[in-house]
């Protein structure tokens, strides 16, 4: 079962954070078809957040076709996002590790690495759109 957490300083709304965490867990294979998401009561009892925030996140996930609510039983994952791409994770991670080591040898600190990655990532994403 997935356990949600909340970053108050991220600038991302709480409901969006919940949606992203489910999507990410699906991509990483931590959640698979048939898994049950925590109930609204379980989530609010853990995070002390508004119940409607959880309901909204679950509705959005349902709308995206990732989960389905079975009344009186719970909300279940209906798809697996990871299968095709998960196999590629290992080699990609290894390459990224090598790249990180290179960046450190070149004298970049954590913040510079993150900044370099994010700007490159965004530029590439924008070029894809254009």
């Amino acid at each position: 079962m997935i356990e949600f957490h909340l970053d108050e300083r991220s600038g991302v709304s709480p409901y969006q954070q919940l949606v992203r965490q489910v999507r990410q867990a699906l991509r990483l294979g931590l959640l698979r078809e048939g898994d049950r998401l925590p109930t609204v009561k379980e989530v609010v009892a853990r995070l002390a957040i508004n119940p409607n925030t959880v309901l909204k996140a679950y509705r959005e996930l349902e709308h995206e076709g990732l989960v389905a609510a079975r009344p009186g039983v719970g909300t279940f994952v209906t798809t697996t996002l990871a299968d095709a791409s998960l196999a590629a994770h290992g080699p990609l991670r290894q390459e990224l590790r090598r790249w990180l080591a290179k960046a450190r040898r070149a004298g970049l600190d954590d913040e510079s690495i993150e900044a370099l990655f994010m700007t490159t990532f965004r530029n590439a994403a924008q070029e894809d759109i254009a």
Partner: peptide, 14 residues
Amino acid sequence: RREFLQSLMEAAVD
């Protein structure tokens, strides 16, 4: 404070 709000939110659902 957090524990109190957890209880309150849980009760609001229940």
